[in-house]
């Protein structure tokens, strides 16, 4: 089962994703962190998420993978949470500055495609940054385009697509069980 979760900042995306995975019948739980700790604020966010998982009723294996998600290998007994697509796309964009956004979008979806079918259950968390004013910076516009393409691609390839609205999940695809 592939689940895509998207929503604004502090909308409870990770919490809902963890709840889904705790209910998974897969033997092993994996948490893939794509964020890189660069400052105090990020450190606080990471610590908070870590503490949540330590208090969890099941054991988690944590992977720190800022780029190259396709290098991870999972099997059908694994339930995997990728948190989150947004930072992964940022990191890949920084790494491949010279690749035009359209080409990068194709390359990144191909990489994600390799990962998609491996785990028994997969939950991917992403952000919605698409409803603001158009930016005057090319890089920001490219980023919103790239993230939009990736989000659309994932919605298409997911069994469930969920929009988080301040803690309330709305199922655009699939139904809540």
């Amino acid at each position: 089962m592939i689940t895509f979760i998207c929503g604004g900042v502090r909308s409870g995306k990770t919490r809902f994703a963890e709840r889904l995975l705790l209910a998974s019948s897969c033997k092993n739980l994996h948490y893939v962190a794509t964020g890189v700790v660069t400052d105090e604020e990020m450190k606080e966010r990471v610590t908070r998420h870590q503490q949540d998982r330590q208090r969890s009723e099941r054991a988690w294996t944590t992977w720190e993978q800022p780029t190259d998600l396709h290098e991870l290998a999972f099997s059908s007994s694994d339930a995997v949470l990728i948190d989150c697509l947004t930072t992964w796309v940022t990191n890949e964009m920084m790494k491949h500055e010279k690749i035009p956004p359209g080409k990068l979008a194709k390359g990144l979806s191909k990489r994600l495609g390799k990962l998609l079918q491996q785990p028994g259950d997969l939950v991917i968390v992403s952000n919605d940054v698409s409803r603001g004013m158009p930016s005057s910076f090319t890089m920001v516009r490219d980023y919103i385009y790239l993230l939009g393409q990736m989000n659309q691609w994932l919605v298409k390839h997911s069994d469930q697509a969920v929009e988080m609205v301040f803690g309330q999940p709305y199922f655009h695809k699939g139904v809540e069980r």
Partner: peptide, 8 residues
């Protein structure tokens, strides 16, 4: 309607 790059 919808956000930018949402496939409208």
């Amino acid at each position: 309607t919808g956000g930018a790059h949402n496939g409208k």
